[in-house]
């Protein structure tokens, strides 16, 4: 149900890009957050930042799986830069007016964990999609 592509370095601005695609089901999110954690550790993120990224990716994916169209895939792309990792997670949704509620505990936690969070609505080959983009720096802010 899941496949992973590790592409060569050479994405925009020299980032290494890793894409994970799974069925949009909560049962496969542990796999995606493990990838996030592994990439952050290899990129020398500090331990708090690794923990934050793993939790942020989990939260973003769980949010999207909740609203995904039946049978949709969950696509999660990681861009590993020198001092930060960018994440773009996306699912297909059944109705074009599907939205993510940002007035939730989970969304507030996501905003706390990530340095940047953005909700993205788009169309992929005419199908409506919803995505969450987030950015995490290698050194976590002390709290």
């Amino acid at each position: 149900m899941s496949d992973m592509d590790r592409t060569d370095p050479g994405g925009p601005d020299g980032a290494s890009v890793v894409e994970v695609k799974t069925a949009a089901t909560a049962a496969l999110i542990p796999t995606i957050r493990a990838v996030a954690s592994d990439l952050a550790a290899r990129a020398d993120f500090d331990l708090d930042a690794i923990s934050d990224l793993r939790m942020a990716v989990d939260e973003a994916c769980a949010t999207l799986v909740d609203i995904a169209a039946p049978g949709s895939s969950l696509r999660c792309a990681f861009s590993v830069h020198d001092e930060r990792i960018g994440v773009e997670a996306e699912v297909d949704v059944a109705a074009p007016d599907t939205t993510v509620s940002t007035d939730t505990f989970g969304w507030r936690v996501l905003q706390t964990l990530a340095d940047e969070v953005e909700l993205v609505g788009a169309k992929d080959n005419g199908r409506p999609t919803i995505g969450i983009k987030l950015d995490k720096r290698a050194a976590a802010l002390p709290r």
Binding site: P30, E59, F105
Partner: peptide, 9 residues
């Protein structure tokens, strides 16, 4: 070994 916001809630 992992605690998500759903667990925190």
């Amino acid at each position: 070994s992992f605690l998500a916001s759903s667990g925190l809630a």
